[in-house]
Design a protein around this nucleic acid. Structure first.
Lengths: 178, 178
DNA sequence: ATCAGCATGTAAGGCGTTACATGATTCA
DNA sequence: TGAATCATGTAACGCCTTACATGCTGAT
């Protein structure tokens, strides 16, 4: 297995719920996951090929006759093992790159208004993302169902908690700079 | 200028305060900045060479005689312009990769205890980082000085606010999972 | 008919890390 | 004298993004 390619784990995690095509995987990543991870076709398709060779996933023909194949991937037992091994690894690295904070930190090189404006841009983005997260939360709380949704629910709660902290900070920061 | 190499801006930002060697720059990045940005020698030294060619920084000899040169870099006017241009760009992308949340999201593939344990690992890391940030804050509030420290202070506040939100979430999550 | 979305993939290149190589200086 | 830290740099490689190339399918 690759040393550090987390996209593999994203794919295995998604496939542990259901069989998916590469295209489906991309859509899932662009959904709720996009708040804490990203991935492009250019990383997904090659990863699927490599993992197929490694026996972590396998193809399931959707049985379309003459047309271009739509490739459904299925997780294998070895794939499940790899996923579990990763979940049990102590080392978990969160790689956070806030360009917003970089600009803030070096704000002294420009007029105060520029920094204030940058905070406002950040604030608006956070506000709109937070609104999305809250609809996710409401939907999840509306439909009372199985345990699997709980993990999804917890990531949404995480997002809401941190985004609200961002907003609180924005107010404070604007006041201090003001 | 490179399309998207933010390390350039980190370097220019640091040099806008004082002349530094590549080694110094690395130390600065590993300090307070490390909470929201990272950088290694393997990216710093090449970036300095490229930026020197572009006229954004220039060397200042420290005047050491026979020994291996210690290279002090100084920001040029063009460098200052580049920094300001970047500060004024509307597009600011925060690239956050939380492996912790990835593991949480796919927690359904393992026993609940594994997820609980992963949350606890996260919680402990956050707790110790938060303690560091709070000492930064206390030091900054102790020494009442110039405006430049204000930007640094705001990034520290940001860290404290979000880390406290993380801890709040950890408690909630453990209760929900428990 | 045409356009958006479904679907798979490749190529080029940028960015960054890790590990290595080298040597000076400082302090116990 | 030996270890830690200062200091600069390169090489190999890994990972990812962007852009491109190609064609199908379903709705209006």
């Amino acid at each position: 297995m690759a040393k550090d390619r987390k996209i593999d784990m994203v794919i295995l995690g998604l496939l542990s719920h259901e069989d998916l095509t590469g295209y489906d995987i991309k859509k899932r990543i662009d959904g709720a996951i996009s708040f804490f991870w990203k991935g492009s076709f250019g990383s997904i398709y090659p990863a699927l090929s490599i993992m197929e060779e490694e026996g972590l996933v396998k193809r399931k023909k959707a049985g379309n006759s003459g047309s271009r194949e739509k490739i459904l991937y299925h997780i294998t037992d070895r794939g499940h093992e790899a996923l579990k091994t990763w979940l049990n690894e102590e080392k978990t690295s969160n790689d956070l790159k806030y360009e917003t904070l970089l600009k803030l930190y070096f704000g002294g090189a420009e007029r105060k208004e520029v920094t204030l404006h940058n905070i406002e841009i950040f604030e608006e983005n956070v506000r709109s993302d937070l609104a999305v997260l809250k609809t996710y939360k409401d939907n999840l709380e509306g439909s009372r169902d199985n345990e699997d949704h709980m993990y999804y629910y917890l990531t949404v709660l995480f997002g809401i908690e941190t985004y609200e902290a961002y907003l609180k900070w924005c107010s404070k920061a604007k006041k201090i700079l003001g």
